[in-house]
Amino acid sequence: MKLNPLEIYNKEFNKSTFGYNKSQVDDFIEDIGVAYERLLKDINNLQEENKKLKEKIEHYQKMEDRLNNTLDTMQDTIADRVEQAENEAQVIIKEAKVEADKIKEKAKAEVAAEKRKVEELREQKNFFKIRFQTLLQSHLEMLQDDKEEGLRREITELENEYEQADEE
């Protein structure tokens, strides 16, 4: 049975000859009514406070859910960006290796070309050395031939002079 303070205050009892003292019963009912009214107010206040606290808890739970969702989204985004950065790094490394290989090949080709040039220059040097030696040798031979021929001419001239002198 649910009672409200008004029912307690207005409650009337049947009278009996040897019943309770009316003023004591009225005072007691009055005290009960006040206590009951205070308890109802306390219950209402506690229920209201409970409702507000539940709303706050719900609000904080929603906020926690949003923060968790945001955190999950951020972690996913970070993971995606890290993966993307790693992929980009791999691509950069591959491109750098390809570029390095190209540079190495180009350098090898240049070294080979320079070696060929040096070899050609050596061959040209040897060729010019041989030609120069041959030229010098032929000039020396020509000089010797000229010298011998000059001596022969001189001898021939001297012989001719002696022969003329003898004839005279």
Rank of each mutant, 00 (worst) to 15 (best):
Q24M: 07
N68I: 09
E64D: 00
M74N: 00
A89K: 14
A35P: 01
E88P: 00
E64R: 03
I43T: 09
Q75Y: 02
N4G: 04
E30V: 01
V82E: 15
I57F: 09
E58Y: 09
Q75G: 03
A79E: 11
V34R: 07
G19E: 13
E95W: 01
K102W: 04
N68G: 05
V91N: 12
E88M: 05
L39T: 09
A89V: 06
L46A: 12
Y36S: 02
E99C: 01
H59E: 14
G33L: 06
L67F: 05
K56M: 12
K15V: 14
Y60H: 06
E64V: 02
K62T: 06
I29K: 14
R66S: 07
D65G: 02
L6D: 08
K56W: 10
E58V: 07
P5Y: 08
E88I: 02
I93D: 02
I57H: 07
M63N: 09
D42T: 09
K15H: 11
Q47I: 06
K22I: 12
Q24W: 05
Y60T: 06
M74E: 00
L46S: 06
E58F: 10
D31A: 09
A85E: 12
G33A: 15
R81F: 05
I78G: 01
A35I: 12
I43H: 04
T17W: 08
S23R: 03
K106Q: 13
N10E: 15
R81V: 05
I57L: 15
N10K: 14
L71V: 03
E99Y: 05
L40V: 03
R81M: 10
Q24T: 08
G19F: 13
E105A: 15
V25F: 02
L67M: 04
I8C: 05
L46K: 13
F18A: 01
V82G: 04
